[in-house]
Structures are given as structure tokens and as C-alpha cells.
């Protein structure tokens, strides 16, 4: 993790209540990989107090774009030309198995934005990618009062069609049943982002469609408020079959087999 001071080159609404902020920052762009995030200082004062989680949306080695809640004060107060204080990279990159030719990405509501960078990365690696939008099934409640974010509320706010012109043509975007047996059998690897309810449903659906849920087959992104991002505060501890693990330093993606969904409530 390093500290970066980056000048904002773009700050706009991306979709529903998701904000996109971009920087011309080659060092930062090259340091980040799909699945990782940055923490942005929200104000030079201490109001808002906590840093904001910015999820990697796109990175090309020169420019890097993140997404976060458009409802967050950071969205309104940030102007093109401002410098933001960022800590990055945080969390572990999601590396797909070399043998995974068919990749299913499932996003619940607006949490689908956390999977876009991974989708494009997988296409660049000549994998087949289905990006499936799941309706919101989670009850919400994560991080109440902190960044009422589409990526921190346990499932996203709205359900709608993601603007497909923002997706590479090789990505198949689906809005029908994301947990269909057809898709679950087709996939070599699954990455999901959503609520604990979605993850429970996903585990059940995989067992029904494939008869078993194998380690390494499906990973889920745990998105909780992460005050420190470095493992110091333990606010993002989750229970896994390997004991308590931290979303910020051990995640944010966990093997669905090892993840006990009760801890994401």
C-alpha cells in the first residue's frame, strides 16, 4: 500500500446512484488489479471522518477509474482538477484460474459495477464472459450511516439494465435468471458481488445444478465498511471456515466454500 495524491480528471454519475471518478495516474493505474480498491480521504478536515472505499472500475496503465456511491459527500464536493489523497492498492486481486475458460460474473443490483474491471480483464485474456445481473435480494443494512453506497448496503439499491455500451462486445450481459442451472453448469469459475442472501442462494443453486460446491469454483466479494483498510481495526472481520478473516486484507473476495454467510449479516 502506498499513498498517492492524484488529480481528478473525471467525476460523473455512471449509472443509477453510482459515481465514477477517474485520475491520470500511471503509477496507481499499474498498481491496481481487478478486485482491489483504494481508500480516499474524504475531506482535508475530519468531516466526513472516514476514508471512502473506491472500487476499481477500469485501468489501462495510464488512467484509472473507480466507482463509489453517488450519495456520498465525496461525489458532490469533488471537482475535476482537485487532488485526492488515496491509499492503494488495498485488498487482493482476483486472479482467475488459467483453466477457467468460461467465467460467470454475478452482480446483485448496482453491485455489478464491482465486476466490470474483472469482466474486461477476463475478455482480454480470451475467456468467455457472462455478466449476469441479479435482482436485489439482500436485506441491506451494511454500514448504515457510512457511505450509503451501492457497494456497501448488502445488495445495491436499484435494479436496472447496466448501460451495455460501456461493456466490451465480447461480454454477454444477461438480465434473466443469474442463478440458472444453465449458467452454473456452463461456468468454469464464478465471481459474485452482492448480499449474504445472494451468496446463500448461489451456494444452494450451485449444489443443485452441479451436485457439489467445490473449493475454488465460486468466489464472493465481501463488501463491508473498512475504516482502516489495513487490518488494524477489525471492523470488517468475517467468519470463514479458516477462522476470522478480514475483508480488507484477506479479501475482499473469499471462496464461497469457506465463507459462512452468517458473518456477512
Amino acid at each position: 500500500m502506498k499513498s498517492y495524491s492524484c488529480r481528478v480528471v473525471e467525476n460523473r454519475n455512471l449509472w443509477v446512484d453510482t459515481q465514477l471518478v477517474a485520475f491520470d495516474a500511471p503509477d496507481l493505474s499499474r498498481a491496481l488489479h481487478p478486485g482491489q480498491f483504494a481508500l480516499a480521504r474524504a475531506a482535508p478536515t475530519f468531516d466526513p471522518y472516514l476514508r471512502r472505499v473506491l472500487w476499481l472500475y477500469a485501468s489501462d496503465g495510464e488512467r484509472v477509474a473507480f466507482v463509489f456511491s453517488a450519495c456520498d459527500p465525496l461525489a458532490a464536493r469533488t471537482r475535476v482538477g482537485d487532488s485526492l489523497d488515496l491509499l492503494a492498492p488495498l485488498g487482493n486481486a482476483i486472479n482467475l484460474d488459467a483453466n477457467a475458460r468460461r467465467v460467470l460474473l454475478i452482480g446483485e443490483g448496482t453491485r455489478i459495477v464491482q465486476l466490470i474491471a474483472l469482466a474486461h480483464d477476463a475478455v482480454a485474456q480470451a475467456r468467455e464472459v457472462v455478466l449476469a445481473s441479479s435482482p436485489v435480494v439482500g436485506g441491506g443494512g451494511h454500514g448504515v450511516g457510512v457511505s450509503p453506497s451501492p457497494v456497501a448496503d448488502g445488495g445495491g439499491y436499484g435494479v436496472g439494465v447496466f448501460p451495455t455500451h460501456l461493456l466490451a462486445p465480447e461480454i454477454e450481459y444477461r438480465t434473466d435468471d443469474a442463478l440458472s442451472a444453465e449458467l452454473l453448469v456452463w461456468a468454469d469459475a464464478i465471481i459474485a458481488s452482492g448480499s449474504a442472501e445472494l451468496y446463500r442462494a448461489l451456494a444452494s443453486a450451485i449444489r443443485a445444478a452441479r451436485y457439489r460446491l467445490e473449493s475454488g469454483f465460486a468466489r464472493v466479494i465481501v463488501d463491508l465498511p473498512m475504516p482502516c483498510g489495513t487490518g488494524a481495526c477489525y471492523a470488517c472481520a468475517v467468519e470463514t471456515t479458516r477462522g476470522a478473516q478480514l475483508a480488507c486484507v484477506d479479501g475482499p473476495a473469499f471462496d464461497l466454500v469457506k465463507f459462512e454467510t452468517r458473518s456477512a449479516r
Binding site: 472516514l50 450511516g145 465498511p225 467468519e239 476470522a244
Partner: peptide, 10 residues
Amino acid sequence: AGAPMPRVVE
């Protein structure tokens, strides 16, 4: 395991 969510309220 710690407290149930939410654990952080700004």
C-alpha cells in the same frame, strides 16, 4: 467473531 452488522456508523 464480533458484533453483528452494522459495526460502523458514521
